[in-house]
């Protein structure tokens, strides 16, 4: 990580020279007088599962909203798939699938109809992906049920099916384990691994550090709006033998004490 503008305690570990799917420089977002995201230089290599860690309110969702064009940065640049946002908004987001905060749907429509709504906006190829996407997340049998009758886990899976309509290069999942039972978490882990195996990048934002360690190859840590570490997980942990959770807590408390 280029540490020029990052926190003085920031941990930078060189990643492999894989092409970058996400690259931000000096990304900053303010809400009134509060700075939610400050000078974030994030680099996410293509074709991996990438964890985005941080405490609640650290700025994870704001970064995701910036990456998906839902809000504009006050400063800095964003490149997704090599193209700048918001300049190439439509081309970039056509190949990005995202679940932001929690998957939301029209509860009065069935699972399949909800996908039809998004597919209609994405285009004809997305319409052809509806049934395969439902099959892939194991919802084909319940696709005719109204979403209002779905469990939280089924909604998460339907949210992933909605992402797959884009045939995405990049899938952004914000707290995807929320509300899932152990079986659902295991299933999601497998699905993420499969998606990465197909050459896609899965960007997982979570405060469940254990899950990130089990699911992801690389990670970044955001704390109070500033990126304080990023790189391959094995390299971040070093030879200390600690878990990602211990490392994360030690890092954030050390930086918190200095701030």
């Amino acid at each position: 990580m280029p540490a020029g503008r990052a926190h003085p305690e920031a941990v930078a570990v060189t990643t492999s020279p894989a092409p970058l799917i996400i690259q931000t420089r000096g990304l900053t977002k303010r809400f009134g007088s509060r700075t939610a995201v400050a000078d974030v230089d994030l680099t996410v290599p293509a074709g991996c599962a990438f964890g985005f860690l941080g405490h609640n309110g650290a700025g994870k969702t704001t970064v995701i909203r910036l990456l998906t064009g839902l809000t504009r940065p006050d400063a800095g640049t964003i490149r997704v798939g090599g193209r700048p946002l918001p300049g190439h908004h439509e081309e970039v987001l056509a190949r990005v699938g995202a679940i932001i905060e929690e998957p939301r749907f029209h509860h009065h429509l069935t699972g399949r109809e909800n996908l039809q709504v998004i597919a209609a906006v994405r285009g004809p190829q997305a319409r052809r992906r509806i049934e395969p996407s439902l099959e892939r997340v194991g919802l084909a049998d319940r696709a005719g049920d109204r979403v209002g009758a779905y469990s939280q886990g089924m909604r998460q899976r339907l949210g992933i099916a909605r992402c797959l309509l884009a045939d995405p290069q990049l899938i952004i999942l914000d707290e995807p384990m929320n509300g899932l039972d152990p079986g659902g978490i295991l299933e999601l882990r497998r699905l993420i691994a499969d998606l990465v195996g197909e050459g896609r990048t899965v960007f997982v934002s979570s405060h469940l550090i254990d899950e990130i360690e089990k699911t992801c190859h690389a990670a970044a840590v955001i704390d109070r709006g500033r990126l304080i570490a990023q790189g391959p997980i094995a390299a971040l942990l070093g030879d200390g033998g600690s878990s990602l959770e211990d490392w994360f807590l030690a890092l954030t408390s050390r930086i918190g004490a200095r701030s």
């Binding site: 998906t68 064009g69 839902l70 908004h89 439509e90 081309e91 970039v92 987001l93 056509a94 990005v96 995202a98 932001i100 939301r104 749907f105 029209h106 709504v117 998004i118 906006v121 994405r122 909605r162 884009a166």
Partner: peptide
């Protein structure tokens, strides 16, 4: 669902 529609890039 508005944000999901916006996030498609349309």
């Amino acid at each position: 669902v508005f944000r999901d529609l916006v996030a498609t890039g349309r």
